Structures are given as C-alpha cells and as structure tokens.
Simulated assay, not measured.
Amino acid sequence: MTYIEILNRSIPVEWLAVIFALFVTAGLYQIATKKKVGHWYWNGFLIYILIWKLSYILFNLKVSLTSPVSILYFHGGARGHILAIIVLSIYLLIVARKNSDLFDNHSTMVFILFFLVYEACLQFFANGWFALLVQFIGLTGIYLFFLSRVKKKKPISLQIYLFLILLEFLIISLFQPLISLDTITFTWLTVFFIIISNKKEVMS
C-alpha cells in the first residue's frame, strides 16, 4: 500500500483516491444528467467503509479485545473487502427491489466513472504522469460518450457496457496484472449494476 504525507500523517493513497473519486463522480454525473446521484450512492459508500473497517474485529477478535484502539488503525484487508462488497450488493438489491425506478440505465455508468477516476489516482501515484494520462484519456472519452447518450436520451446497450469493461481491462493491463482484487470487484459490480438497472423483471 502506498502512503502520502499530509500534516505529518501517513495517509494511504487508496483512501484519498476513493474519497476523490466519490465526489468527482457525483459531480460528473450531476453535470451530465442535471440531477443529483441517488442516495444509494452515498449510503452504499458508507456501508462499504463501515463493513470493511469493522470486519477487522471479526477476523482479529482476540487482538481487538486486548487492544481496541487497533480498530482505528486497521481494517479487514482482502477478506474485509470481499465481505463489504457482499453486504453492499445485498443493500443495493434490497433498495432496487423496493424501488426499481431508482436505478435507471445510466446508473451503471456512475460506478464505471467512479472506478475510472479511482484508478487514475492510483496509477498516478504508482506509475507517474504517463499512466495518469492514459487513464485520463480513457475517462474523457467514456464521459463524452456518456454526455452524448444523455443529451440524445438514448440508453446504453449491454454490448457497449461490455465494451467499456474490456476497454478498462486493456488500460489496466498496461500498468499492472490484469487479475487482481480490484478488477474482480470492478467486473462484479459493473455486471451487478447492469442487472439491477436494466432488468426490472429481476426485481419483481
């Protein structure tokens, strides 16, 4: 994990990338659609963070009981991430079942934009300006396409979403191993969003 010094504190780059991507994505979506991203976006983020952090207790119960302050500094790691993604998926499914209209065809793009911004930040700190430039070009192209679909009031087809997944895989493969926890998470959540956003019969 890469760290950056801020006010004499070592902050994981991943945390900064997530926070930056969270707000930038919300802004990009609002610019494109003229409406705020749904409450599921912010709630989902909080649910993920809480489960990911508190899962440290589940996987390190003895240490947590003997030294409770460790909960503030550590998290559940890869196992905590997987558990958080499972809980997040369940939450989104419950929300979608209660109100299937909450997720429209463009909701999947919210997560894709989030992942692209997140990866751009990570690649900058890990591989420098060239990696950032490549990610930025990909992000810009996808966002301009998104703007055009919103302006024309046309949905984004499944084939296009699959193409975007493959495109991001291609970009990632230039700088890191293609098979990783990040890419698996990206694939799962993108497919999951496609299902709940475009297949309302799944919710009935």
Rank of each mutant, 00 (worst) to 15 (best):
K154A: 13
A120Y: 06
F145Q: 03
L144I: 04
L144R: 12
S107C: 10
L113C: 10
W129C: 06
L170W: 10
L113Q: 11
L162I: 13
K151H: 11
F169E: 04
V150E: 06
F114Y: 15
L167P: 07
F114D: 06
V150H: 06
D104I: 03
L144V: 02
K153R: 14
F114H: 07
F146C: 02
V110N: 14
V110K: 10
G138L: 08
L167S: 09
A126H: 11
V150W: 05
F163W: 08
A120D: 04
L158G: 13
I137L: 05
L113W: 07
F111L: 10
K152E: 15
V134N: 02
F163N: 04
F103Y: 10
W129S: 13
I165R: 07
I137K: 05
Y143R: 07
R149S: 04
L144K: 13
Y143C: 01
R149E: 01
A120F: 01
I165D: 10
F169A: 09
F130E: 09
F115R: 02
F163T: 12
N127Q: 15
L139W: 03
L147V: 12
I112T: 02
L164A: 08
L162K: 02
F163I: 14
F145D: 10
L164Y: 12
L133V: 09
V117N: 04
Y161W: 08
T108D: 08
M109E: 09
Q123G: 12
Y118P: 06
F145H: 09
D104Y: 01
I165W: 06
L144N: 05
D104V: 00
L158I: 09
V117G: 07
V134W: 01
D104C: 08
A131K: 07
I171A: 02
F103K: 03
Q135K: 09
G128W: 00
S107Y: 00
I142M: 12
L170P: 03
Y118R: 05
L132T: 02
E119D: 14
F124I: 05
H106C: 00
W129P: 02
I137W: 07
L164E: 06
R149W: 09
K154E: 15
I156N: 03
A120R: 00
Y118S: 09
I171Q: 04
L133W: 06
P155M: 08
E168I: 06
I137F: 02
